[in-house]
């Protein structure tokens, strides 16, 4: 039982990061019906920018650990949001009227571009965050050692997700985003500036991805230029699992995927863990073809 709970916390911590990245996929998909394959690389960029800012600005001299993290997170999110918006402007907007698979190829091209740009700028070696930024204490509950950071990480993910959910549900901009997701044409007729809505989506999604990158860097320490591809794929899986286009779905999908992976590794086989996760995904999709929380869309006639 102890082992089970330990693995559950392991899975939830990883799942929180998947969920945070999955939100970016889901938001973009919701409005544009585009699978943004470059999203994983925005996550990588977030991790690298975080490292640059951390080592060049010397924030640790003025602020305590949590102050540093908050200031850093805001800066990284802002910068990655700009990259995201630029990506939309350059690579996706010209393709908005064409077949949606065309934009997927553009996204894949952008992904290759970003990944190699990071490699050329920062070098191919692993980069490592300084070790002493965050306190490394563990909490002792139920006879388990759970690192405090893990809990904070999970908590941060959940807070961000709830914040986003409220933003989408309660604010005027959020309502506009939802309207554009349902029907862009109708939203335009109602006086919504759809271009601006899409830009906002491309600011928020990448910002969350960048934040996730920073979190991974701060907690795990090691980052490399190819990591976005793997995280991106996992997060995309999570978004689909929960029902793509649906924000609570991305949260549930991400956390669930993390837990499935941890449990698969713990009780079946580590080497097969990803295969197990995909098997579960396929079974879920056979039973619920639009994911766990996805709406059943009636075919248009």
């Amino acid at each position: 039982m102890e082992l089970f709970i330990q693995q559950l916390t392991n899975g939830l911590a990883v799942g929180g990061i998947y969920a945070l990245i999955a939100l970016g996929y889901t938001m973009v998909y919701g409005v544009l019906k585009l699978i943004n394959f470059a999203h994983g690389d925005l996550f990588t960029i977030g991790a690298y920018l975080g490292l640059t800012l951390l080592t060049t600005l010397g924030l640790t001299n003025y602020l305590g650990p949590f102050g540093v993290v908050i200031v850093l997170a805001l800066m990284v999110m802002g910068l990655v949001a700009i990259v995201g918006a630029a990506l939309e402007r350059v690579a996706y907007r010209p393709l908005r009227q064409s077949h949606r698979l065309s934009a997927v190829v553009s996204a894949l091209g952008a992904s290759i571009f970003f990944q190699n740009a990071v490699m050329l700028i920062y070098g191919a070696r692993y980069k490592v965050y300084p070790h002493d930024i965050l306190p490394r204490t563990a909490i002792h509950i139920f006879g388990l050692d759970i690192p405090l950071i893990r809990l904070l990480m999970l908590l941060t993910s959940i807070v961000m997700m709830i914040g986003l959910y409220l933003f989408i549900q309660r604010t005027k901009i959020g309502t506009a985003i939802r309207a554009a997701a349902i029907d862009q044409g109708a939203a335009k007729l109602m006086g919504i500036n759809v271009d601006r809505v899409i830009m906002i989506v491309f600011l928020i999604g990448p910002a969350l991805g960048g934040a996730a990158g920073l979190m991974v860097g701060l907690y795990y320490g090691q980052i490399n230029f190819t990591m976005g591809w793997l995280y991106g794929l996992k997060a995309f899986t999570a978004a689909i699992l929960g029902g793509i286009g649906n924000i609570p779905g991305a949260m549930v999908g991400g956390l669930l995927l993390g837990v499935i992976e941890a449990m698969g590794a713990a009780y079946i086989s580590i080497a097969w863990k990803d295969a197990i996760a995909f098997c579960v995904l396929i079974i879920i999709l056979i039973v619920r073809p639009t994911g766990l929380l996805g709406e059943r869309v009636a075919e248009k006639i």
């Binding site: 090691q222 190819t226 080497a271």
Partner: peptide, 19 residues
Amino acid sequence: DALTPKENDYSAILTKMKA
């Protein structure tokens, strides 16, 4: 057993190994 390279979180594996 085998881990999946290039991931960041190996805590599930370590927990299992510790057991």
